[in-house]
C-alpha cells in the first residue's frame, strides 16, 4: 500500500502547489487523479513516482519497480525506440510487459525517437512506463493517441496488475471499470485569506467548517488551518475569536 501523509510541495519560497495531501493507494488499484489546471495533479504524480521530493510530509510504501510517464515526454531523444526500450529493460533487470506493438506503433523502430511523430513518441513513452511491474504513474497518457491506441491503452490500464495512477483531462479514464477518482482542489487554484487558528476544540472545528465561504485545509491537535473568502474573512475571524479560538496567523 502506498501512503501519502500530509504531503505538501512548494518550489523555493513560492506558493504551495500542494498542501496537506493524505491519500492511500491499494496494490493493483486504478486511481484517476482529477482536478482543474494548476490543481497540482502533475506535481502529486511526480512526488508519488519519486521524481521530486515533497517539501512537507512523506510518501510511504513506494514499491521497487516504478514506471513514470511524464506529461510531456521529451521529443529530442537520440536513441531509437528499440534501443531505448532495450536499455530501459536492462536498467530495470526484470521487466513487465512490452506494449509497444499492442499500441500499434507504426514508426521505424530503428530511427531516432526525435524523428518519430508525436503519437508514436507517446507510444514509446507509454511502453517504457509499462516496463515497471509494481506501480505505473501515467500523466496524461492519452495525449496524442489515435482512437485505436486509446482503446488499447484503456484496456492495458484496466488489466494491469500494478497499481496505476493516471491523470486524464478528457475523461476517458473516469469511465473505466473499477476506477477510483481523487479530485484535487489545489491551494494554487484557491484564493482568499488563509487563517490559522489554535486552541480550537473539535466541536468548534466542525462548526467553523460548516460556515459559508470557509474551506478547511487541515485540522489537528487543536490547530485549524482555513482558507476563507475575502468577503467574509473579517466576520469569520471575529466569530472564531468569540468562540474562544486564538489567531496564530492571517495571510492574504
Amino acid at each position: 500500500m502506498i501512503r501519502l501523509e500530509r504531503v505538501g510541495k512548494r518550489y523555493g519560497r513560492g506558493p504551495w502547489v500542494l498542501q496537506d495531501v493524505d491519500l492511500t493507494f491499494e496494490p493493483g488499484e486504478l486511481t484517476v487523479i482529477a482536478g482543474g489546471n494548476g490543481s497540482g495533479k502533475s506535481t502529486l504524480l511526480r512526488i508519488i513516482a519519486g521524481v521530486t521530493s515533497p517539501s512537507g510530509g512523506r510518501v510511504k510504501g513506494r514499491p521497487r519497480s516504478v514506471g513514470y510517464l511524464p506529461e510531456r515526454f521529451p521529443a529530442g531523444l537520440r536513441l531509437s525506440a528499440k534501443a531505448y526500450l532495450r536499455h530501459m529493460s536492462a536498467v530495470r533487470g526484470s521487466t513487465g510487459a512490452d506494449v509497444l506493438d499492442a499500441l500499434g506503433f507504426r514508426g521505424d523502430p530503428d530511427a531516432p525517437i526525435s524523428t518519430l511523430s508525436k503519437g508514436n513518441t507517446q507510444k514509446v513513452a507509454i511502453a517504457q512506463a509499462f516496463l515497471a511491474k509494481d506501480l505505473l504513474v501515467l500523466d496524461e497518457p492519452w495525449t496524442g493517441l489515435d482512437t485505436g491506441a486509446s482503446a488499447v491503452l484503456a484496456e492495458l490500464v484496466t488489466a494491469a496488475e500494478a497499481t496505476v495512477l493516471v491523470t486524464d483531462h478528457r475523461g476517458t479514464a473516469r469511465a473505466l471499470p473499477d476506477a477510483h477518482e481523487v479530485v484535487m482542489q489545489g491551494p494554487a487554484a484557491a484564493t482568499g485569506v488563509a487563517i490559522e487558528l489554535v486552541q480550537v476544540s473539535d466541536l468548534t472545528t466542525t462548526v467553523i467548517g460548516d460556515w459559508d465561504g470557509v474551506r478547511v485545509l487541515s485540522a489537528s491537535d487543536g490547530r485549524l488551518s482555513l482558507l476563507v473568502e475575502t468577503a467574509v474573512s473579517d466576520r469569520v475571524l471575529a466569530d472564531a475569536l468569540r468562540m474562544g479560538c486564538s489567531v496564530k496567523s492571517v495571510r492574504t
Binding site: 511526480r46 519519486g50 521524481v51 519497480s65 514506471g67 513514470y68 521529451p74 516496463l131
Partner: peptide
C-alpha cells in the same frame, strides 16, 4: 534533458 533524466531516475530506482 531534465525530463528524460527524471524518467531515467525513476527507471533506475
Amino acid at each position: 534533458d531534465p525530463t528524460q533524466r527524471a524518467v531515467t531516475a525513476v527507471t533506475a530506482g
